[in-house]
Design a binder for these strands. Structure first.
Lengths: 336, 336
DNA sequence: TTGTAAGCGTTATCAA
DNA sequence: TTGATAACGCTTACAA
């Protein structure tokens, strides 16, 4: 490996001191002689000097890096949020390190500690919810954090969070199906371990109740993806099978599609379908998929903004920032 | 902000010196008294000390971070490669920083320099190809780099690269269409600015030639995504419109789908379709999409492995590591 | 307008 | 078995 060029090398070559080179690097030209400036520039160019941000960060106690700990990177929603965060951060010359926690509290803990050890300036967290003491500790340390997607009741008012209004969006979606004349509407989600899923099921119930329809528990499936085929079998083998189905997220939708394809269902004639979450081919698929779209880009940008404001010690409200979702009616929903 | 606990604080609390604490942190217990060990552990726990990896990195000249500069993160292929790289890196306690260069040489240059300034231990690069002098410089510096997806002729033998056998895969796909009886086969890609696209078109031509079929240039579309609708209009308005089409990547496929949907084509009856690249819903879509699948996971893992070996100064061959793709025949291809 | 010197939190070399 | 002390490459008072 070629010997690394340091600031001292530049200083020697330009016949000035380290500090003067440092001034130059940091563009503090005000009190710098034209001559000196030129000498330094030349030295830098001929030596091919590149500053070491690591050393700078150590001194300045600021790395210009943030960490993102995402629950499951395979969700389209996560990808879009991350993309938005990155765009915003890059515009501010901040780098993001992304970690995938796989909804595993141990991994989450490991990553939080590792990122803090790396001295990242702050954290955006899709929390598992199972590391309350860690969250509390970060609050005590006044470590900049933003919570994303899931609500953590214990830290309310202490850590700002960016969430969707899942309940209302689901309610509206189900109301739409009711308006179309559907009497038997099912919902399928993964296990109710995090708030968005709970809220979506709540919204489902609220819609039925508000329309004076009975809530039939057999129409509510909450199980792991691996068990969904069996659950769907059972659902559609029952006496009054659903004529409409809400898939709780994009990955659940794949399971539903698999089932539908295997059983030769015709969508939307045999079954109306709504998917919670953006899916990339919703528009151009045949039939185009009716979805509930989360404003992922806005949410990601907001989270980045809230984090950076905290890092810069600007005032923010430590509250829940809630975003409305949009029901985009396409071709998989039909009146019954 | 709470005062940060440093190694010195721990040393004082445990009544030992900094160096002893450092030994402890680095698990060099060999010559350490049982008593000392216990005192240090206690001090760390009560103070909640966390080592500062920044300082360690500065000293050790190793950050345990690598950079990934990806051409366009919106491609499914990129996502899968990144995911594989991350998985492999995490298994080695290495963090990856991902940057999206948008196929823009200026951005690429900016990111390369920034990541090097951050002292990342190495770089995995989906190169634009337009920064040869930068690539050359990294070779001179013996900076660990792996090139991904695209070939850069100038650095052959100097930087290892991980690529797909695009030409062969495309040839096989076209031969399959020919076997199905198609006489008019078209291919649509983005502009021929990078090797994979060039090779795919070459494979297309090679297939036709080897089957003694004429190569009709009007069947080869290479244009920006924004111009594809118009190009497709023209293609299908011609005298002998194609009965089969190969979409050059997943994002091109979306353009094709848009066109198909707008014009009410029936797939595969009106048109057989093959997509180069994995697409997430290929299997469960109706009709299921015939694709050419790149071994993204293997390629990503290999790239990470090659990079880490370089970082650890292990010997590797500085050559092109070429991976075969697989034609997965599903339902969008029909005999004609 | 530029230089000196201390310090950021570690690790590494030696000495004790 | 442990401790002093000098790096690592930069920034920043403060002095000149």
């Amino acid at each position: 490996m070629m010997q690394k060029i340091t600031m001292l090398d530049v200083a020697k070559a330009a016949n000035v001191s380290k500090s003067t080179v440092s001034q130059y690097i940091n563009k503090r030209y005000e009190y710098m002689g034209e001559e000196t400036r030129k000498k330094i520039k030349e030295a830098i160019d001929t030596l091919g000097y590149q500053p070491n941000y690591l050393a700078r960060s150590l001194k300045q106690k600021r790395t210009s890096m943030i960490g993102i700990i995402v629950a499951n990177i395979m969700h389209r929603f996560s990808t879009e949020v991350i993309r938005a965060i990155e765009d915003y951060c890059h515009s501010q010359d901040i780098h993001a390190i992304i970690c995938n926690a796989d909804d595993d509290p141990d991994k989450e803990k490991k990553y939080i500690n590792m990122l803090k050890a790396k001295q990242v300036d702050g954290l955006i967290l899709f929390p598992t919810g199972a590391n309350t003491s860690l969250y509390e500790q970060m609050i005590k340390e006044e470590y900049p954090v933003v919570i994303m997607d899931r609500k953590i009741h214990d830290v309310k008012g202490k850590i700002p969070s960016v969430v969707a209004n899942n309940q209302e969006a689901t309610k509206q979606a189900i109301l739409h199906l009711l308006e179309l004349g559907h009497k038997h509407i099912a919902i399928i989600t993964e296990p109710l371990t995090i708030t968005p899923r709970i809220e979506r099921v709540e919204g489902y119930k609220e819609a039925l109740t508000s329309a004076n329809m009975p809530v039939n528990e057999s129409m509510i499936i909450n199980c792991k993806k691996a068990d969904m085929q069996k659950a769907l079998e059972k659902l559609f083998a029952a006496d009054n099978p659903p004529t409409a189905l809400l898939a709780g997220n994009d990955l659940v939708f794949i399971e539903v599609q698999k089932f539908i394809k295997q059983h030769g269902f015709n969508i939307p004639n045999d079954l109306s379908l709504i998917v919670y979450d953006n899916i990339p081919y919703a528009d151009v698929a045949t039939p185009a998929v009716t979805t509930i779209s989360q404003p992922a880009f806005d949410m990601g940008t907001k989270a980045a903004d809230l984090l950076i404001k905290q890092i810069l010690k600007e005032k923010i409200a430590y509250e829940e920032y809630q975003y409305e979702c949009e029901l985009i009616i396409r071709e998989t929903t039909l009146s019954h």
